[in-house]
Every structure is written in C-alpha cells, then in structure tokens.
Amino acid sequence: MPTPYETPIGSWTRPTTFFWAATGATFGLANVWQFPYLAGQHGGGLFILLYLACLLLVTLPLMVTESAMGRYARHGLVLAMDGFVRSARRSRAWMWTGRLGVLAAFLVLSFTAVFGAIALAYVFYGAMGRFIGAGEAEAAGILSALVSDSRDYRVFMGWHGFFLLLVVWVSMQGVVDGVERAVRVVAPAMMLILLALCGLAAWSGDFRSASDFMLDFRPADVTLDSLRAALFHAFFTLGLGMGVWTLFGAYTPADTRLKRSVLAVVLMDTLIAIGAGLAIYSLAPDGHSMEGERGFGLLFLSLPVALADLPGSQFLV
C-alpha cells in the first residue's frame, strides 16, 4: 500500500461536513433541469426505482472507492494516483487518469461559471420584479439581452467575473474557514429554499398532477433507453471521474463513517431531485405545461415566468 502523504491542507473539523459538502456539490443543475424530465418521460416512479438501482449498484461503490483513496492519500486525485502508482510499481501512464479527471473538472467549471453568472444576475432581476407579468417571449428577451446585447453583455461579463471571484475568494480562505464554513451555510440554505418551494407548490400549485407525472408507475414508458438515461444521470449528477470525491475524502476526518455518509448523500440527492420536479411541475402557470421541458429553457425561461406571479416572487426567482 502507498505511504500516505502528509500535507498542510488540513481537514474539516466536523464529520458531518462531508455530508453537507457532498450534498451541496451534487445538488446542481442536473437535479432541476434534467431529472424531472427523465422521470416523467421514462415511467415516473419506475424510472426513480431504476435510477436508485443504478446509484446503489454502480455509482455508490465508485464514490466510496474514490473517497477512500482521497482520505488515505490526503491529496487530490493526481498526487493520490502518483502515490498508488509508485507503491504498486505500475506504469506512469496511470497518472493520466488523475490528469484527465482534473481536465474534466475544468471543462465542467467552464460552463458552470456561465450558468452561475446568469443565476446571479437573475437574483437581482427577480428582486427588481423584471419577470412580473412577463411571458416566455419577454423572458427570452431579457435573457437574450443579458448574454448577447453589446451593452448588457459587458454587464454579463461582470456577473461572470463576480461568480469566479466568489469561488476563488472562498478557496483562498482555506479548508476550514473557507470551504467548510461556506458549505455548512450554503447547502442547508439550498435545502430550505427547496422545502419552501415544495410547500408553496402544495399550497397554491397543482401538486396532484405533478405527483402523478413524477411518481405514478407507467411500465409502458420504460425501455432500454430508460436504463441508459438512468445510468448516465447517475454518473452526471454525482460528478464521478473528476476527482471531486477524492478531495472530499482528503479533507474528511478519520472518524467519519465514509460509507454511511456517501449513502446518505446519494439518498438526499435523489430526494432533492424528486422535490425539485414536484415543485417545478406544480407551479406551472395555468394553461401551460412544463412536463416536456428541460435544460436551459426550463431553468432560465419557463421557471422564472412560472414563479414571477406568485406571492413574494421577488424572493423566489
């Protein structure tokens, strides 16, 4: 076995930080703009069961393995692989598995930063009431002006820089004062917002129709493509292969129950995805269905329009 690296990176002060960090990392765009659509199109509750099977049988063991590698090596994926390769006296070509993981994380950050910039701008647009009374055509005009208009595009680049600045600033504070403090605030806050949206959906939305669409068992809709979609989404939403779980493991205290924590993250990620779908489809405006929508248009066009006319929409959009 490789000799563990001793580095000054430190570790999280609480065992539960692994759960909050991993939950915050997995609660992303895929839960909002992809999973609800996939569940609705591939059998509802049956797709959710199929997805859970893919998580538990395929991705969960990989997550535990990657996290355990990081906790043992106390380094990121590249240097962790270096230690294992040296100890096992294997070809240095195995180092490319770590390097490609870092490259994949960089590519994901390149488009995540764009979405993050738009989301930051929408926080202020929603607070100013720009979406109140707007239809999808008006929402498309607002989005188009933000990302393509010559004047507003400079504003968008400002949001883009602000988003990256926040990421860099948190990282520079270190493991405990930066990353740990941020995830222990941001991750619970995201869950509270989702719970509030689900409560609002049950109170003023068409919660029954959304439940039927998301949770009813429809065997006729389950095909081989459903299995492919479930497996792909299981890998995509959990960020496997990018070294993220290796870093989480590297920061994790030795007394953290890793397997239990990873299982809790997997189950919480699934509950969050289901809750997001119920909220989205319940809050669709009268006469309009979002059941066939997903992706960029759902997140930045249909959803702001659906939320804009609700009570307190300035805080929701």
Rank of each mutant, 00 (worst) to 15 (best):
Y72K: 14
Y251H: 09
L194N: 05
L195N: 06
L240W: 02
A121I: 07
S144V: 03
A134L: 06
W245H: 15
G174K: 07
G129N: 08
L164T: 07
D216N: 14
G174Q: 02
V244N: 11
P219S: 11
T23R: 00
G249H: 06
E138F: 01
I274C: 04
S87H: 15
G239H: 02
F106M: 12
L301H: 04
L283M: 13
S282D: 12
F207H: 06
A53T: 09
L278D: 04
S150M: 12
Q314G: 15
G44W: 00
G199L: 13
L146Q: 03
M69C: 12
F163I: 05
G239T: 02
M172P: 03
S144K: 12
L103Q: 09
A117K: 02
Y51D: 01
S148G: 11
W203T: 13
Y251Q: 10
T16K: 03
V32Y: 02
Y122A: 08
M128H: 09
Y125M: 09
L258Y: 07
F115Q: 10
G135K: 04
G277K: 04
L165S: 14
G83V: 05
F111N: 01
Y122I: 03
L258I: 13
A220D: 14
F163W: 12
F35E: 00
F19P: 01
S211V: 00
A137G: 00
W245D: 02
R71G: 03
A196C: 15
R89Y: 09
L46W: 05
R154C: 11
D212W: 13
A234V: 09
F19A: 06
D309M: 08
Y72M: 12
F115H: 04
A117P: 00
M69H: 03
G10R: 02
R228V: 14
S313D: 08
L307R: 04
L56E: 00
D216K: 12
M1T: 05
L303V: 08
